[in-house]
Design a binder for these strands. Structure first.
Lengths: 229, 229
DNA sequence: CATACTTATTGTAAATTATACAATATTATT
DNA sequence: AATAATATTGTATAATTTACAATAAGTATG
């Protein structure tokens, strides 16, 4: 089925901020645009919403069209609508964001994209439009989120060490944490299960591997927690 | 200056959720619509965004056009964009919300409105479109907000009693709080100043009146607090 | 094998904060 | 003087937070 252009909401788009974590940094998924406007630049996956398409459906579709990612659950971040944000005509964009495990997904640049790449959130290039601002807003949201909900299940491998999850929190909050206190507090949530396995292939004492107790994790995610660090 | 209809973004609107407090309940400002769609129904103040108008400017303009309210600082809530939300054609709305002191503002129904009225958030009529859902989302946001920022300056009269502010928190959170513990915790924030005045005209022991230390209040509002109750 | 190297793991005392709980104080009214 | 209504306050116990560094367990090296 070919969609005629009358199906497009010309003045409304969606952009996707996809966060991942590689044990050192928070990463953002960017695409190198193959077409104007913004040709040759790194940008967020984003495009127009269709006339008869719900917002979350549009975000999913656009993400897939640009990066090949499927089955990504995104939450709405907020709208960005400065009159000057898009150079050609007025476009209000509704930004979505998601957290995911980098290694669980494979990327496939779509037709409007020459390349997809994970970029460290601390070393982003200058992006077109207001995409840097959108990412900054998403980052703030993530920072806030981390204090009121458990996090990690979405970003860490299934089995992980306490050091890894501490690194995750440190990356998000951009602060150093006291290991002893962090561990006490984290273990106190009782959402971690000791797998009795250990790290392999490291040139030092191997750390214990943990996994999340999905049920308890989700319960706390709904309830909300108070995780001041 | 007459704006031609080409200045309107046909598929994008803004809706305003204005919260107030009357010492008993959280109130929402509604307007009775004078024109279709929704004629005769209570609804949120809302209308199209203009082509060359920033989102926050649009929200301010629409609020003023519908209710006469000026100088209201609104924050973006989120977008609502179900394809079915508006009966005539596709309209995505960007909702804003604000908190304000009811008695500080005077209402004046605009041309598309026959009446404006504060409605208790617990006794809302059925509103057209998805306006009930929008209010519910705003309420959740407020509930969340209260745990991470001080609140009250926007909703209470300049001088207020500790009982009033406790009522405010109880209304928002929809729970009963222990008076002794609440007061200890609140006073501990050190954002209240004892005015050494007292309530007047009550048929019982008059309560002390407090006011906010604006400087400290704003500082905590920026920093964020942890106000678990 | 002994030593160095690297990261993982753990405890404790002191301070602070949270919690549960009800008697007394102050005014206006009768 | 008694009543009615709401305001105000304290304390003991439990739980949590904070600051702080020594020891453990592997691998790598000579």
């Amino acid at each position: 089925m070919v969609k005629s252009s009358s199906n497009i909401l010309k003045n409304v788009s969606t952009d996707c901020v996809i966060f991942g974590f590689d044990n050192a940094d928070i990463k953002v998924l960017l695409v190198k645009l193959a077409v104007d406007p913004g040709k040759g630049e790194w940008a967020l996956p984003g495009s127009n919403i269709l006339y008869d398409e719900d917002l979350d459906v549009a975000a999913k579709r656009v993400l897939c069209e640009f990066t090949g990612l499927e089955n990504v659950y995104m939450e709405q971040l907020q709208s960005f609508g400065k009159t000057s944000r898009f150079p050609l005509f007025r476009v209000i964009t509704i930004a979505f964001f998601a957290l995911l495990k980098i290694e669980d997904y494979s990327l496939e640049p779509g037709p409007k994209v020459t390349e997809t790449q994970w970029h460290s959130i601390n070393k982003l290039p200058k992006l077109p439009f207001d995409h840097n601002e959108i990412i900054e807003t998403a980052r703030k949201r993530l920072k806030q989120r981390v204090r009121i909900r458990p996090i990690g299940f979405e970003l860490l491998p299934q089995k992980f060490t306490l050091t890894q999850i501490q690194n995750l929190y440190e990356s998000i909050l951009n602060i150093k944490l006291d290991t002893r206190n962090f561990r006490k507090k984290l273990l106190n949530l009782k959402i971690l299960i000791d797998t009795h396995e250990r790290q392999k292939g490291v040139a030092h004492r191997a750390a214990k591997l943990y996994k999340f107790d999905k049920r308890k994790y989700n319960k706390l995610k709904e309830q909300g927690i108070n995780f001041e660090l």
